[in-house]
């Protein structure tokens, strides 16, 4: 009985401390053609709190971001920064830890500040393995209109981590 009480307390504390968050983003960027463009984007991203590592590649047209533990960043903030630099943010490959819920016949992954709707295009095998609760997944976030970013995204799962 005592052990069970300790376990409940630890679990409660754990759920209180852990953040549902993005951990890694490979953000596709269109329209970035020059070194100062990459420099400006890299500098802008580095100014954001919660990033551990930033690398911008002109040839790949991508910004590779590793986010720090307990960050509070959202994908919307990252894509807004891309837009602020005059470019267009497209698809993003992300690693996210969040709370998965089954709602309206589909799965939603919720982080502290955003919602990711699991796309039907995800493989049936992966979808069949989904269970409500805390989960860490890898997937491709579909492109959203730059001027209309809402914080709700559609994600195609590629891996359950």
């Amino acid at each position: 009985m005592k052990k069970l009480a300790i376990l409940i307390v630890v679990m409660a504390l754990g759920s209180f401390i852990s953040h549902a968050q993005i951990q890694k983003v490979d953000q596709e960027v269109f329209g970035m053609d020059c070194a100062p463009c990459a420099y400006g984007l890299e500098r802008g991203l580095k100014k954001m709190d919660g990033l551990e590592k930033v690398k911008v590649s002109l040839n790949d047209g991508k910004a590779y971001l590793k986010l720090s533990e307990n960050n509070n960043l959202s994908l919307k903030q990252i894509q807004d920064e891309v837009k602020k630099n005059g470019f267009s943010a497209k698809k993003a490959e992300v690693v996210i830890e969040g709370k998965l819920i089954n709602k309206n016949g589909g799965f939603q992954l919720q982080t502290d500040n955003e919602t990711y709707l699991v796309a039907n295009e995800s493989s049936d095998d992966l979808i069949s393995k989904l269970q409500s609760g805390t989960i860490k997944i890898k997937g491709i976030v579909e492109d959203a209109e730059d001027d209309n970013l809402s914080g709700t995204w559609k994600i195609k799962l590629t891996e359950i981590l």
Binding site: V29, F30, G31, M32, D33, N59, G61
Partner: peptide, 13 residues
């Protein structure tokens, strides 16, 4: 004032 911009590919606009 850049009144039109279309970034349509990697490095392209």
């Amino acid at each position: 004032y850049r009144f039109f911009s279309n970034a349509f590919g990697v490095g392209k606009r």
